[in-house]
Write a protein that binds this DNA or RNA. Structure first.
Length: 419
DNA sequence: TCTGGGGTCCTAGGACCC
DNA sequence: TCTGGGGTCCTAGGACCC
C-alpha cells in the first residue's frame, strides 16, 4: 500500500498561544522562557527577526528585549496543554488515524486519501485550525514521515502548505534542505557529515547504506531510507507506556542546606509517583540525582546519583519518598551550591503484574487504597491539596515564573473579563 | 548573578556463564 | 601450566527528538 502522511505543526506554538487571548500582541515580538525563566524556548517571527536564538539564555538578550519592547512570558503549560488539546480535536476531523507526536505537532495518516485533491485537503486543514482555535499551522504532506517533516518545514517558509508526491518535487525539496535540518540528524551528525562533504538532505539520500550505517547507526539508515521515499516509521496511534519517568527541576536559587533540598526532592517524588500510577505502572528501581550548575564553575561541577532497587515494584509515595530521601542524604555533601535535584523511576512493570512478596503484601494493600484516595483528592482539588510534612513550607526551591500569563481556558478565576 | 525538562534508542564494553 | 569462543545481561555514554 502506498503510504501518505501529513505533518501538521503549530507555528511558534507557545508564542501563538499567548497571542490568542491577547490580540494586542499580534505583530509584536514575543518570547516564552523555560522553567525558571532561564532561556528562550519559543519566539514569534518578529522575535526571530531580531536575532533572538532558540535556547538563548535570557540574561544574554535582556538588553535586546528592552530596546525592542519584546514581550516576555514564563511558560504556562496549563494553557499550552489545553490549546494543544483543542488543535488535536480539530485535526481528528480530518483522519481516523492520528498520532499526537508532541504538544505542537501531529502526524495524520492520509493513505486513504490518495485520490482526493491533496493540495485542497491540506489547504482545508491549514484554514480550519486557526479559525477554530486561533493557532496558525503549517501542513506538509509526503509519502514518509521524514519527508513530511521536510515538506512542513518548506511549507512554513512558503504559503503554509506543501505536498511532495512525485520524484522531481521530492528531489527538489531535498536539495533545498540542509542536512542538519533533517529529522534525526542533530548537530553532532551534521558536523560529522560535513566532514565527508554531505551538505544537503539530497547528498545524504545518495550516500551508501554501509556509509550511513557506519556513521549514523541503523537509526540513521532508517532516516535515509525515508528520505528515499521508503516508509520505515509507522504512525503510533496509541503511545506505548513510558519505560522511564523523570521528574526534576532547577531550583529558583542555588541551595546549600540539605533540608531545603529534601523539600524539593520530596515534592518531585510525589509528582513522579503520581505519573507512575497514572500509566498504571510500578517501578523496580529509581535513581536520585543532585547537581551543581554546569555553567558557573565547570571544573568544580558536582554531580552525584544513586540508584536504588526495590524488593517489590512500587508506585507508592510512602515507599518512594522515604527511600528517595535516604538516597539523597547519601549523596549530599555540604559546601556546594546546588542547582538541581530529581528522580528517575525505571524498570517499569504493569501494576497488575507485580509479584506480591510474602512480607510486604499487607502494607501494599494499605498503600494502594491510600494512593487511590490521594489521587482522587488531587484530581478534585488540585495537586497541592495533600502534602507530606517533609515537603515543608519554605519552598526555597520553587522556580521563578515572573511573567506568567493567566490560564484563560482552564481556571474560572482567569477567564477573560469583558467590561 | 542569571543557561529547561522530559523522553527514546543504539553501541561498546565488561561481567558472567557454559 | 596453559588454552577458547559464544551468548546474555547490564550499564554508561552518546546521539537524537520536542
Amino acid at each position: 500500500m502506498t503510504s501518505l502522511f501529513a505533518l501538521v505543526d503549530c507555528n511558534n506554538f507557545y508564542a501563538s498561544c499567548e497571542r490568542v487571548f491577547n490580540p494586542t500582541l499580534v505583530g509584536q515580538p514575543i518570547v516564552v522562557l523555560s522553567n525558571n525563566d532561564g532561556c528562550v524556548i519559543a519566539r514569534s517571527n518578529e522575535a526571530k527577526a531580531l536575532g533572538i536564538g532558540m535556547g538563548a539564555p535570557f540574561f544574554e538578550i535582556r538588553e535586546l528585549v528592552k530596546a525592542h519592547g519584546v514581550h516576555v512570558f514564563s511558560s504556562n503549560y496549563e494553557l499550552y496543554g489545553d490549546m494543544s488539546r483543542r488543535v488535536t480535536l480539530i485535526l481528528s476531523e480530518y483522519t481516523p488515524h492520528l498520532e499526537i507526536y508532541s504538544i505542537d505537532e501531529s502526524f495524520l495518516d492520509l493513505s486513504n486519501f490518495l485520490h482526493v485533491d491533496l493540495e485542497q485537503h491540506a489547504r482545508a486543514i491549514w484554514e480550519r485550525v486557526p479559525r477554530a482555535t486561533g493557532i496558525p499551522v503549517a501542513v506538509g504532506v509526503a509519502p514518509t514521515k521524514t519527508l513530511a517533516k521536510i515538506a512542513n518545514r518548506l511549507a512554513k517558509k512558503g504559503t503554509g502548505t506543501l505536498v511532495l508526491r512525485d520524484r522531481e518535487q521530492i528531489e527538489q525539496a531535498l536539495r533545498a534542505t540542509a542536512v542538519a535540518d533533517v529529522w534525526g540528524v542533530g548537530r553532532q551528525y551534521a558536523r560529522k557529515l560535513a566532514g565527508y562533504g554531505v551538505q544537503t538532505a539530497y547528498d545524504l539520500s545518495c550516500a551508501t547504506d554501509s556509509f550511513v550505517k557506519k556513521h549514523l547507526t541503523i537509526v540513521g539508515l532508517r532516516t535515509v531510507k525515508e528520505l528515499r521515499g521508503e516508509s520505515c516509521l509507522d504512525l503510533e496511534l496509541a503511545p506505548p507506556p513510558k519505560q522511564n519517568i523523570c521528574t526534576s527541576r532547577s531550583f529558583g536559587e542555588p541551595l546549600t542546606e540539605l533540608t531545603d533540598i529534601e523539600e524539593a526532592l520530596a515534592a518531585h517524588t510525589v509528582r513522579c509517583a503520581s505519573k507512575l500510577r497514572k500509566q498504571n505502572s510500578c517501578a523496580f528501581s529509581f535513581t536520585v540525582f543532585l547537581e551543581t550548575s554546569r555553567f558557573t564553575c565547570p571544573t568544580q561541577h558536582y554531580h552525584q546519583s544513586r540508584t536504588v532497587k526495590l524488593e517489590v515494584p512500587s508506585s507508592s509515595e510512602l515507599v518512594l519518598v522515604a527511600k528517595a530521601l535516604e538516597a539523597l542524604r547519601a549523596i549530599y555533601r555540604p559546601g556546594f551550591r546546588y542547582k538541581k535535584t530529581g528522580i528517575i523511576v525505571s524498570g517499569l512493570v504493569p501494576a497488575n503484574q507485580v509479584q506480591e512478596s510474602l512480607f510486604s503484601a499487607n502494607t501494599r494493600e494499605r498503600d494502594n487504597s491510600l494512593m487511590q484516595t490521594l489521587d482522587g483528592l488531587r484530581e478534585k482539588f488540585g495537586h497541592g491539596i495533600v502534602k507530606y510534612a517533609v515537603q515543608g513550607t519554605s519552598h526555597k526551591w520553587k522556580i521563578k515564573s515572573e511573567n506568567l500569563s493567566p490560564c484563560y481556558t482552564t481556571r474560572l478565576e482567569d477567564l477573560i473579563k469583558a467590561y
